[in-house]
Design a protein around this nucleic acid. Structure first.
Length: 709
DNA sequence: CAGTGAGCGAGCTTCCGCTTGACTT
């Protein structure tokens, strides 16, 4: 066999196969572009370690906790084939270019490739923020070495997550239930959902009343709302706190009676315009999509789950319709800016495009910006009409959303004016009532011509800033009045998170990464911490127990700032100001006053499982999380009337679909009463004067039969 | 179903982040 001659080609390795095709095109002859398809090595499951290692200091985490936290890496089973292919390609190449993403994880992938492929040819690290011919060639002119400090930072992050998850999860198995898990990201996310439910449980609703009326001059009428009585502002939803207490000192709180009598007293009153105030209105377009904002907006406008949004986006990306869909950057490349501005001008006219391109600053904490924003691919965008024949239902709708958002982001502000009319009259009882109405008129739609961002369900009063035109009126004009009615309102608790609003919050706080938002939300559902009720995320009672334990014993680890603090430290490692191994040593074994994770876990002392799994619900009634789910227990001893026996406690099941905030004291009593017959005595002693028909196996069918006849 | 428990104690569960297919339901 003749000895194999080198092809003289250069091997370039990127992360994503879809990217590799485009890059190959730009680099041309002489280059072979391959993809690693993400990470190629990772820490194995400790159970998969070779037997001889299991007994050593590596055995617990696949990290040597006694020797500078040296990780024990293995090539991931599903990457063995890929690695073999890359090795074969490298044999024929005369240079290797590691072109993985320009962020912390990408740097680590480059290093792992280096470790596994052991190239004998020159190796260069290259990075680019966008996939254009210019950017790729610029990257070729700015080659460097793999940044070992940045790799150290990634490795530290990886090991920290293993130590955190695999040290704390077993505590939950022992104290709450088997199979549970804790982690730097999932535990904080679960805590957010639990905290929101706690706020809802503690929430006390307040009721307040106001008036609306129809006012007008001749034929034109408009609706206005009571704003002030005798010069004092009328209290509305935002004037109450979550305890149902009025917090605005100068506001008048109208109840049913006061509002109804005022409405009656205004029936024939002489209403006049008191002021007309006009203010200019401008609104700016939203930034181009990041992973997080795409998931939110697709959730709001298209009702997609985060998971399905990502699946559809992946297909669009692979087929060349959009740019990369896992990104935390809202920046557009120069090529995209030009394309968006040109297309906006063509479709809407040059006056719709501002003089200079709009630049969006990144709002998210810890953004790494290895890619540009999510936008239509290419240097001239295909319009939705042009792709309509190639894309089916959901894919088309997602493309259209991305296209609109991108175009709109480079269009001018919407301009108009907001008019506010204040009008009033004196009621028959002498009270002065002032109403107000406002309406916005858009004189130049700007970006609104292309796209408007959706809104999340808002709290409190319904927004009256709708785009409506108010009639032309002037001060002291007399107005007709009709339909003056009193309306009662109740303040509402903070809304539950949805996938979309939770993702937004995670991005804002810098918790998790674009590639994991969707899977994190799946994880907390798979573990039974959270379930979806419609689009709302509702925590389980198990989650309450878990979070309570973590808050009490691992306070710092479930702090909302934990990840942000970690990122700060990792930055120091990436800058060479700190070393990963020393940082991990501090984290795991402690330092000075800080005990470290290991000693916390080893010195938990007596965690009273019963206490952790209990939540007081009402006087004498406690919710407990047991082996078979949550149940209610009453601690009020009662005497069984038949046997004369003292019953120490009674129990009742809690329905699966009952959200924690729906388990009020009254509901708990009701559940105890309708539980098993043995609780009958409990119910009778508790509410002696209420006649109560036990719904037992004996009585229920009878009553059903009789009621049906 | 039954509720933090007698004794012995095997074997099991778990993290985050980067990427796609190859699987089943």
């Amino acid at each position: 066999m003749p000895s194999k001659a080198k092809t003289g080609k250069k091997l370039v390795i990127v992360e994503s196969p879809a990217k590799s095709k485009t890059i190959a095109k730009y680099l041309g002859e002489g280059f072979i572009v391959e993809a690693s398809i993400g990470h190629i090595r990772d820490l194995p499951q400790p159970s998969d370690l070779p037997a001889e290692l299991k007994k050593t200091s590596v055995g617990k985490f696949a990290v040597d906790i006694e020797n500078d936290f040296k990780p024990y890496y293995v090539v991931s089973p599903d990457k063995k084939k890929k690695v073999a292919e890359l090795k074969a390609q490298l044999k024929d190449a005369d240079a290797l270019y590691l072109a993985t993403d320009g962020d912390r994880e990408g740097e680590a992938i480059a290093w792992h490739l280096l470790e596994v492929l052991k190239p004998k040819v020159p190796v260069y690290r290259m990075t680019f923020g966008e996939i254009t011919k210019e950017a790729i060639h610029r990257a070729m002119d700015n080659l460097r070495d793999v940044d070992s400090a940045l790799v150290d930072a990634q490795e530290t992050r990886r090991i920290l997550d293993r130590l955190y998850g695999y040290e704390i999860s077993p505590v939950l198995w022992r104290k709450v239930a088997r199979g549970l898990s804790a982690g730097r990201v999932q535990s904080v996310v679960t805590r957010m959902v639990v905290d929101r439910e706690r706020e809802r449980m503690a929430f006390k609703s307040a009721s307040y009343w106001d008036l609306t009326g129809q006012f007008g001059t001749g034929s034109a009428t408009f609706k206005a709302k009571l704003a002030a009585v005798d010069g004092a502002k009328v209290a509305s939803g935002r004037d109450f706190n979550d305890d149902g207490v009025l917090t605005s000192a100068n506001a008048v709180h109208l109840n049913d009676e006061l509002a109804t009598s005022l409405a009656a007293g205004l029936e024939n009153a002489d209403f006049r315009v008191r002021s007309v105030d006009t203010k200019p209105y401008t609104r700016r377009p939203a930034a181009p999509f990041t992973t997080s904002t795409l998931q939110q907006e697709a959730g709001r406008k298209l009702r997609f789950t985060s998971k399905s949004t990502m699946q559809i986006a992946q297909r669009l990306y692979e087929n060349g319709y959009i740019t990369y869909m896992r990104t935390d950057s809202s920046a557009l490349s120069d090529e995209a800016l030009t394309a968006a501005r040109r297309q906006a001008a063509e479709l809407y006219g040059p006056e719709y495009v501002p003089q200079s391109p709009r630049v969006y600053a990144n709002k998210a904490a810890n953004a790494q910006e290895a890619h540009e924003a999510i936008r239509p691919a290419g240097d001239s965008f295909r319009t939705p009409a042009q792709v309509a024949n190639h894309l089916t239902g959901d894919a088309f709708r997602l493309y259209e959303l991305i296209w609109k958002r991108t175009i709109a982001s480079q269009m001018g502000d919407a301009k108009g004016s907001t008019a506010t009319i204040r009008l009033g009259a004196v009621a028959t009882d002498g009270r002065d009532a002032e109403f107000s109405a406002s309406g916005t008129v858009i004189t130049f739609p700007g970006f609104l011509a292309a796209y408007e961002e959706g809104k999340d369900e808002s709290r409190g009063d319904d927004d009256s800033d709708e785009a409506r035109r108010l009639p032309n009126v002037a001060k002291d004009d007399s107005l007709t009045a009709s339909d003056i009615i009193a309306i009662g309102h109740e303040t509402s608790p903070p809304p539950r998170y949805t996938e979309a609003s939770l993702t937004a919050e995670l991005e804002k706080r810098g918790i998790g990464r674009p590639s994991t938002y969707a899977s994190t939300i799946s994880t907390i559902q798979d573990r039974g911490y959270v379930r979806k009720q419609g689009s709302a995320l509702v925590p389980s009672w198990i989650a309450f127990s878990v979070i309570r334990l973590l808050e009490q014993h691992f306070t710092d680890y479930v702090d909302y700032e934990f990840t942000a603090d970690m990122e700060g430290d990792l930055d120091k490692i990436a800058n060479g100001q700190a070393v990963g191994a020393a940082w991990l040593k501090h984290f795991y074994y402690g330092e000075d006053a800080d005990p470290g994770l290991l000693s916390i876990v080893n010195n938990l002392g007596e965690i009273d499982a019963r206490e952790i799994n209990s939540v007081p619900i009402a006087e004498g009634i406690t919710l407990r999380v047991g082996k078979f789910g949550p149940y209610l227990e009453s601690s009020i001893p009662t005497v069984d009337p038949k046997t004369g026996e003292v019953v120490e406690s009674a129990r009742a099941n809690v329905p699966e679909d009952l959200a924690p905030d729906e388990l009020t004291a009254a509901k708990a009593v009701e559940l105890m009463e309708t539980a098993a017959p043995r609780n009958a005595s409990w119910a009778r002693t508790r509410t002696p004067d209420t006649p109560w028909l036990p719904r037992t196996a004996d009585t229920a069918p009878t009553s059903l039969r009789s009621s049906r006849r």
